[in-house]
Nucleic acid binder design. Structure first.
Lengths: 336, 336
DNA sequence: TGCGGTGATTGTAGCGCTACAATAGTTCTG
DNA sequence: CAGAACTATTGTAGCGCTACAATCACCGCA
């Protein structure tokens, strides 16, 4: 193979054109607008192109056309398995729209900025970001670029458009579920990472609900890593030392919930009899673990496919449009 | 925002140059080779660029330079949590090398072909693919393009270079571990998806080991989805109906192993007393579940970072180089 | 026979940038 | 103080492609 930062000189459109004895424009049309080209010509061009291993140079194409068929999308980390469905949704919808999805990793607002900058540099035709936790520089760049943008998993204050669900409403539903089941000492496992507003939003809502019900509102513990099982043991421990009569928990993810179940098993605490547990996300483990997790289920696939549709929706809607894909509180075994 | 398939006319290098009263080349140098430009000039150009919201057009840059700073990488699916470390490794090494990683989803050889084509279209400077299960068209494209390529997670027959571990050796280690513990009726949970040679490689090695030890070599069952917990229950069921005295299992992933543990709990089968279980991957759940999983641990992070380094290694090495990152059989509780 | 109409094909120009060579400006050496 | 040896900056040319308008070939019909 060639040197590390160049690439072997590849077949160009002109070479294909010469070999197929047509003009470059016909080759271009063959690839971009096949029905502008007569059947047999197209066939011939395609054959020659294949023989020569021709792959159109997107950079040149994008430059000349002033547009691209790429959609840029960030992924926060691949720890969270529920993003699988989200990404499937994105992929399917992008495919249907004839666009290509490219991803870059963005685990912090700073990395997100880098990713956004690279995507804008590539002149993607649309951008899909997770959440609304951006640096001011990112927001500025986004605004100036004018690239269609969808923020996902949340609804509030979109820069352009947003699709997701109402997290506060889901917290309320979880609280009320426990209360209705007669639980009186309810704990919340939260995650305060500044990068995660979608977690930070929860404690205030929780407190308000508890206050309204006349219950303790201070049973809140923080975990550093909401995608690890150990966080569950730790959180349970801390919660129990706050109130040893704790009888219910609401978790930031199903992983933490599973960690709590594992820990309860070890300590011989009966779930749901002694402690009721509500998870979040409806990950696979929710229905695999024994007892099965009661959990908050967003609609990741709908968020994904909806995001792409929203991106290219030709509405005269002013920016600020939010689409609510809803959520369900799936009742299984860990919280009656 | 603008119409769906274009983007707002963005600031160009020439505009920045005019505003900063320098030539376009100085702007170019400011971004690409800062030390070719005098400190104060650079400062001025940077300020002006920031004010105008200038983001260099990578398409134009790539076209003009005949090269890019992008590395293309496929992700097979985001179901598998152990890829997190792999991707971290890629990201860190790419960062250190001053390259940008872009991902595309490739869940089948056909999707992989599309992704490779898109990456070549973008003229990435290197390509990192998972596994060696490619369509002939993909291999052909890869060969012709001459783009540096690393295949990961495997060692055999690389097109260009490969980095990973010896799966056959790991299967052998797992078999021998069970045998040494006195297990005599050992089952293998396999996964025959044609897209997954890394799974398909296992049964023959397993059979050979069993034969060599004079044990049954036909206790093999297939699961459709190696990343789901239910597969565990199902596999255990099938294995037990093949031999109700089954006393050991080797799994394709820790998820399946966890599913088997869950099922054993339900059926009151003691692990590891009655059945020993070896998982694969050392996912987080391996050390979270009770009893803790004995498992095969590859070195995902090393595979990731090694892949990037390998990609741009200026060795005179002929293509065909494979780097073995090894594996460990982590002894925990489910197989003594 | 000629003329408009239709559809396929082609030439022109330029997208925004960078490699490279050339030029201007500045310092150093004998 | 001339001229070599830098360094900072600038023109020139062209990367490979596509939008757009122009051209060409062919048909039917008056």
């Amino acid at each position: 193979m060639t040197s590390s930062d160049g690439f072997r000189r590849m077949t160009t459109m002109r070479e294909v054109a010469e070999a197929a004895d047509v003009s470059p424009m016909t080759v271009s049309n063959t690839f971009r607008y096949p029905d502008r080209v007569q059947e047999d010509t197209r066939q011939r061009v395609e054959d020659v192109a294949r023989q020569l291993g021709y792959v159109p140079n997107m950079s040149a194409g994008h430059l000349a056309a002033g547009k691209s068929r790429l959609i840029g999308s960030t992924i926060p980390s691949v720890k969270n398995s529920s993003f699988y469905q989200y990404i499937s949704g994105l992929e399917e919808a992008a495919d249907a729209a004839g666009k290509k999805l490219v991803f870059m990793l963005a685990e912090s607002p700073e990395q997100e900025f880098e990713a956004v900058q690279a995507f804008i540099g590539l002149r993607v035709s649309g951008l899909i970001l997770i959440g609304n936790e951006h640096t001011p520089a990112t927001v500025d760049l986004l605004r100036r670029s004018g690239i269609p943008l969808v923020e996902t998993w949340l609804l509030h204050d979109p820069i352009d458009k947003a699709i997701g669900y109402d997290i506060a409403a889901a917290v309320r539903a979880a609280c009320r579920h426990h209360i209705k089941a007669g639980r009186r000492r309810i704990g919340l496992v939260s995650h305060g990472d500044p990068a995660s507003r979608r977690f930070r939003e929860r404690p205030p809502v929780f407190r308000a609900e508890m206050r309204a019900a006349g219950l303790r509102e201070d049973l809140i513990v923080d975990v550093a890593e909401p995608h690890g099982f150990e966080a569950g043991s730790e959180a349970l421990d801390n919660l129990l030392s706050l109130d040893r009569e704790l009888d219910a928990v609401i978790c930031p993810t199903d992983i933490v919930a599973a960690g709590i179940i594992f820990e309860c098993n070890r300590r011989n605490i009966a779930v749901p009899q002694k402690i009721g547990v509500i998870g979040w996300g409806d990950y696979e483990i929710a229905s695999a673990i024994a007892p099965k997790l009661t959990t908050v289920k967003p609609n990741p696939k709908e968020i994904g496919s909806g995001a792409v549709k929203l991106l290219f929706q030709q509405d005269n809607q002013l920016p600020g449009l939010s689409v609510d894909t809803g959520f369900d509180l799936i009742e299984r075994e860990t919280a009656s």
